[in-house]
Design a protein around this nucleic acid. Sequence first.
RNA 1: GCGAUCGUAGCUCAGUUGGUUAGAGCGCCGGUUUGUGGUACCGGAGGUCGGGGGUUCAAGACCCCUCGAUCGCCCCA
Length: 415
Amino acid sequence: MSKNTPKAIRGTQDIFGADAEAFAYVVETFERVRKLYRFRRIEMPVFEKTEVFSRAIGETTDVVSKEMYSFEDRGGDSLTLRPEFTAGIARAFLTNGWQQHAPLKAATHGPLFRYERPQKGRYRQFHQIDAEIIGAAEPQADVELLAMADQLLKELGIEGVTLHLNTLGDADSRDKWRAALIDYFKKVEGELSEDSQERLEKNPLRILDSKDRRDQQFLADAPKIDEFLTEEATAFFEAVTTGLDAAGVKWTRAESLVRGLDYYRHTAFEFIPDDGSAAADALGAQSTVLGGGRYDGLMESLGGAPTPAVGWAAGIERLAMLVGGHSEPAADVVVVVEDDQMTAEGQAAVSAIRAAGISAEFIASGGKKKRFDKAVKVGSHAILAMSGGERRLRYQSEGEDSVRLASALRKLNLD
RNA sequence: GCGAUCGUAGCUCAGUUGGUUAGAGCGCCGGUUUGUGGUACCGGAGGUCGGGGGUUCAAGACCCCUCGAUCGCCCCA
C-alpha cells in the first residue's frame, strides 16, 4: 500500500465476507420479526440540529460535550451526526404530527456516530436496530416491546442471554431514590473509589454498577428503588412482569440497572450475556446486547406535550458477533468458458440463467486451462462448462437444489 | 481522557546475542502436468520492515517521538 493512500477513519469498519453476511442476517431477521409485531418502518435523517440531542440528553454527562460528532454547516447551524435514534424519532413525532398515528409502533435501523475510544464491540460509526412505541402509557406496550426483543434474539439463534429488568419508578420515586443514594454514599465517601467519589457528584446512580471492589462492599446495603416506589409505580411494574410471564419471556430482576438520563421512567432493561457463556466471551467488556426503557419525559424536553413512550435499540455489530458463521452462499451455477470462441454463447447463457432467477458466476478470463479450476473453487451447485463448441453440465451437489436447478436449466435448454 | 500489548508482501506469520542482496505458506498472474478435471511442479509480480528522529562501523531488531490497531479503564444516549 502506498503511504499516501488515505486510511479509514478511526473507529470505522469495512465489513466483508462472513461478517457482512452475519450483519445482513441480523437486519433481515429484524425486518421479519418487526413485521410479525406490526411495527411500521420509518426512515430518519442521519443528522439533526444539535439541540435535538443536547435537549433530549441534557447536559448532565460528558456525552453531549465530548462524545458527539457536532459541526457547523454553511448556514451557521450546529448539526450533529445522530448518536442515537430515540431523540430524532421523538423530534419527527412532534414535527410531523405523528400524534395522529399514536400509539405509533415504529422500527428502523442504520448507522449512528459516537466519538468514543474504539474497543471490542464498540466503534465510532456503528449500527443499530431500533423499535419504539410512542404514545402508549400502558404497561402492555412495554410487554409487547420486550416480547419482540426476546423473539428476535431467539430467531437469531442467540443463547445464554438474559433479560435484566428494573423499574426506575415515576419522576417522584426516582428523585427520592437518588437523594437517598447520595445520602448513603456520602457517609462512606472516603472509602469509595476515586471514580465513584466523582460519580457521587455527577451521576450517583452509576455507583451501583461500579466494577471496583472498594465500591461493591457498600452496594448490597444501598437503598433500593422499591422503598421509594409510589403505589402506581409498583402496580405498573407488576403489570409488566405479569405480562412478561404470560408472554413466556424469561427475565431477572436487576435492582442496580439504571439509566443515566433524566427522561427515563419506570421500565429499564438490558439483555445481557450470562456469566461464562459463549456470548459473554464473544462480546468482551461491551456486554449489553440490547437495551432500552420507558422515556415518558423525553417529549417535554423537546417542547412537546407530555407523551408516554418506550423503546429499545441493539447494536448490529454485537448481534452479528453472536450469530455465528454465516458464510457467503454458494452460487447456483458457474458458467465457465474454456474456449474464447464461445464467450458470446457463455454470456448469453449466464444472462438467461440470471434472468430466470438463478444465481450465476461467469468465468471467461485468465489461463484457459485454469478456468475450470477456478469454477470449482468458486463453490456452486452446478458448473456449466463450454469448450470446443460443446456444453457440459456437471452437478456439484445432490439434493433439492440440483432438482430445482435441473428443471430450471431444462426450461432454458441448457441441460 | 488513562493504561497494557502489538505494527515485516494482498492475508497469516518467520526473521537467532544488532552483521551480506529481508524470507515461507496461502492468495494473485503465467507456464508445464493431469484431462470430467479442486492434483503436482516450475516461474513471475508484489516490501522504502507504519512514519520521523537517534545510538552504532552496521538497525526489521536497541532508544525517543509520532501515527495506527487490539484489549481494558472511564463513559455508555
